[in-house]
Write a protein that binds this DNA or RNA. Sequence first.
RNA 1: GCCACCGUAGCUCAGCGGGUAGAGCAGCUGAUUUGUAAUCAGCGGGUCGGGGGUUCGAAUCCCUUCGGUGGCUCCA
Length: 648
Amino acid sequence: MIIVSLLEYYRFKNLRRFGIKVKIKNDFIELMPEDLERFSKENQAIALKINGEIKDLFYISSLNGSEEIEIITSQSKEGLEILRHSVAHIMAHAVKDLFPEVKVTIGPAIEDGFYYDFDRDIPFTEEDLQKIEKRMHEIVKSKQPFIRKEISKDEAIKLFESLGESYKIEILKEIEDQKVSIYEEGGFIDLCRGPHIPHTGMVKAFKLLSVAGAYWRGDERNKMLQRIYGTAFSTKEELQDYLNFLEEVKKRDHRRLGKQLKLFEITEEVGPGLIIWLPNGAIVRKIIEDFWKDEHLKAGYQLLYTPHIARLDLWKKSGHLDFYRDNMYSPMEIDQISYQIKPMNCPFHIQAYKSELRSYRELPLRFAELGTVYRYERSGVLHGLLRVRGFTQDDAHIFCTEEQLEEEIQKVLDFTIFILSTFGFNDYDIYISTRPEKYVGSLENWENATFALEEALKKRNLPYQIDPGEGVFYGPKIDIKIKDVLNRSWQCSTIQVDFNIPERFDIKYRGKDGKEHRPIMIHRALMGSLERFMGVLIEHYAGAFPIWLAPIQIEVMSISEKHVNYAKKVYDHLVFNGFRAKLNIENEKIGYKIRQAILNKVPYIVIVGEKEIKNNTITVRKRDGENLESIDFEKLIEILMKDIKDKK
RNA sequence: GCCACCGUAGCUCAGCGGGUAGAGCAGCUGAUUUGUAAUCAGCGGGUCGGGGGUUCGAAUCCCUUCGGUGGCUCCA
């Protein structure tokens, strides 16, 4: 990792040369030990990379000149992680100072900061966090050095026994090495692999954010600990930027915008995790559904509609009752027969496949459905539109031969990317999940299918990562996470190969050879579920839907009552041309009406008054405040039509 | 499901060392006839999430239940 600027490089080029090779950008320079020390100090080094291994900064004194050195500062990803980890220690130190009865457990750096889990019977309050933060500032100010010691495991156990830190002992007992490292800073000792910053004074910007429950070792059978989350950055500005980012996230929260823009509602009376789509949300959904259906027909899919409930036996046969019972609702009795509300669409699509004898000539057969399913989710996991109990999957099942598998997957990938990019998602994290411990189907099947998934991604030049053992029991899968404008990842699309269901339902096709063969099934959802996708879209667009999706595309407003008739005429014309328009002839000042429309995030505002009537024009104001000159009505229609066609 | 916090008018929130409720916005009515992010005035609206308890008296204290929020676990 390169952390020093070129300017500094040239400055240091004049320094005395010695055996220690220091990597700067992609070059190496050689420095005298004392120059290196000065160099690292001036660059706010917090650690060193010695021959590729990250070490504490004090190792600088033990270099013999043959090493390759990189200087790690908190500007780099690795450095920031070290910094945050050190701040976690400082937090634990502060907590122990203030609440000596607390037992410490673990405290790593994470994506956006760090946390530390504590065992304490009394919960931490907001005031406690403030006190802890205050104490942390004191520790930072006193510039306590982080001191690393290597001791034997037995010694460490004795040490932590004397400190009463039973969780540390539990961790120690599972460490295989006989030697462990501990770090001490201002009297606070923690079992830790390191590395750490040289001293606490190097912490420039941190903040404690929240308290939450967390199970010891993440196992819900274990004791619930108290986790304090915090974050740290290399400068105050960066911390402030991050806090601003959190504010922005809050502003875009789809639950808040959903209420404000009257898109959807979740009420206690209906039940948790169940969505009422209000007119504004419903129209957006309808447009997405229409788009989805049209594109599926173009892509060679056939549409299906299937029921919401089916005989329980169907779910026994599909295996869902065995594998998925915990997420299924209780069955209901109808005429002494048990029926089940559907958690999946696949068994129905299988029935459609089985509705006639199939020939290899028909394959691949692609069945698509916006299928609403109901799944039990534990109450604590529900979250707005993103995690619900009733949702509509943009589901499809492709039945194909083994030879067709790879091509079909490629087609699905292309299709997925087309659909996602239409909504402005052009950045993806792609994962292939491979065979888990518990699986069905032959090893050969798995290998072939996994290979097909990989090949498809390679041929499309899509970078991906492997998630080993994370596949579903019935087959490997590709998961695509999209990144929104704030660069947050959302799991939506999934492409899964299924060896299980075709087998269980004994579906077949007649091959060229006249014999019966079993088709392979691909199960895929592009948007995942309409609910989740809409939630992501709302946050992605911050509620300001592009014109092709906007619930109201144009709001026509009159300056005063005198202009109502003309406004009506304009409005009627817009509606006649198929636009979703709103007429605002309220007896209010124009500024007020504009404010309302902007708060409702209407993309186009049309204003008509004396001037417009006289010239037979309209004045257009865009959502972002840009004013189009008074223009001809037909000109507006032209602009709008083009934007809608381009899905802007 | 677990831990913590929260639940007052349609919305956002104030009131909470106990004495049966307020504001702004929204809604309705009227005045105003308006030129690019809030014209003025009046009116209506809540058994303070539900249930139970303590008390002469509970939005306020306690218990319980439902729901929400942040996490943990889970996400076939």
